[in-house]
Write a protein that binds this DNA or RNA. Sequence first.
DNA 1: CAGTGAGCGAGCTTCCGCTTGACTT
Length: 648
Amino acid sequence: MNLIIVESPTKARTLSRFLDKDYSVEATMGHIKDLPKSKLGVDIEKDFEPDYLLIEKRKKEIQKIKSASKKANLIFLASDPDREGEAIAAHVKEEIGNGKTRRIVFHEISKEAVFEAIKNPRDINSDLVNAQIARRVLDRLVGYKLSPLLWKKVRRGLSAGRVQSVAVRLIVEREREIENFTPEEYWEIAAELAKSGDKKTFIASLTKIKDKKAEVKNKNEADDIVKDLSGADYKVEDVSTREIRNNPYPPFTTSTMTQSASRLFGWSSKKTMSVAQKLYEEGLITYHRTDSTNLSRSAVQKARSLIQKEFGAKYLPQKERVYKTKSKSAQEAHEAIRVVDPFLKEPETKGRFANDSLKLYKLIWKRFLACQMSEALYDRKTIIVSAFSKYTLKASGQTMKFDGWTTLYASIKDSSESVIYLPEVKKGEILDFIKIHKEQRFTQPPPRFNEASLIKTLEQLGIGRPSTYAPTISTILFRNYVEKDEGKFVPTAIGTAVNDFLVKNFPEVFDYGFTAEMEENLDKIAEGNSQWKITIKKFWDPFANKLEVIEQKAERVKIETEKLGKKCPECKTGELVIRTGRFGKFISCSRFPDCKYTEKYEQKLKMKCPECKKGEVVIKKTKKGRKFFGCSRYPDCTWASWTDPRKK
DNA sequence: CAGTGAGCGAGCTTCCGCTTGACTT
């Protein structure tokens, strides 16, 4: 009897299905050891010795593993093939405490991959484990030293960390960009033209004036050009047709899946991940927390045979498509997110969220199949027109020749570049002038982040991991650092104050490149080329100095309040302001602490309560920070709902 | 379903990354 230990119980179940009776499989449910929650757990005096303890909640799993290991001849530690997985394997080995353990890794869950791995066992890679320790200790030092500083200098209960604080920083700085943005006026000018005698017209936009890019700044300039152009001869200078090839998107990762579900279904990352978790547990999709775009050979073969059968040879490229993982921080522990069986188009999904499950499954199915299909082909035709040999105008449009993969999965490009009618014309041909179009426009500020764009940006910066994107968003909302306004993130006064304090005093730690630099150092440790204690010491010494100075010298941070423009009804002298407390926003008197008047701040939905029809629907927060909808007449009316009543 | 802010100063808050449940207001 041999024992295989993996991280996920679902993975354990899948493995035991295709392994014979000689193997038993157990799961750790993630990490089994960690630093203590209630204290630092890092002995700085003793070279940063970490105090890894068994996690209370994992006692049950450890017991099961221990008893199973007693019956086993060999124990294969098959946690994920990355830094964290190596640490888990090391921790399990410490607990089992005998020489029967072997470390194995596999990158896909198939019989072949598992047996191949078993044939190539190795020892625990202590360099990789050391890299995990360095990562853990660094995050603990940053989080557990800076948070208490915030309690002292800003407010109790706040938090700071390598990941969450940068997420807040992105949102705060974007808001400032928007506030400081001055829109600039510009004009778009186009001529509506037609082939001589043709009834159908087309639009050519002004691109150049005297061979320089046309930049029309104001109405006077626009009017002059329009006057000029109105009586002009329009001559075709050039006609060209070019074939455009459009390749499919790579298969989903956690980041791209949450982005697509957000764009297409309007789902939060939390919702997408929980629906994906169910699909994974039902054996319908591969693991949903991954940054890899790798696909198993056999899955690709199945996909190809389905494409051949359902869509025909034209839709099947000669060679299978291979996707290289772009993300620098990727650790390739898992495959891309794909359906397990491409031939299963519409599985029966169970439970309360059956509809959502099916919706997400179909999206993953399409994305996976599409990624192995032929490219889409377009003809892009461009007509260059001149007027007075001073003005250059351009009309372009494309027609699809072959839909390829877009027959399954809509390309974003298709919706933005609509098919435009362009006539058959020849060089030198004179066109009929119909009329001039002009339109005033303004440059736009960058958009606020939503969950999708925030996750995308964090991933590009290498900050956070697939398992933490959704939880990080929950954290910064729960702490009231940011709030959502129509799905977009807006920083609160607290979030802005905390961010400015951190960035001003610890610019290196919250620099957008800090994590990338940390990863480089961790790689050196993992390769055995550097010692983790030295790396941590290099960070710690200047950091500790700064901590001390700032703790002594920094002033307590004042948090800006938003005025409501009303007098305080109690003292009649102060003004009412909005403050953000531990439980969200509330209204109070600006003369606090001299006047202690407070009032509830209610975010109204402009909708009557569906139950009593008298009160208004208001947004509230539970003690745990979760948003819900309730009636403003509470406790007279106890109507409440998790979901937005407007969306029914 | 009251509480939040300041400061008094009991005792407590806090990180990131692995994994799943529990499951309501």
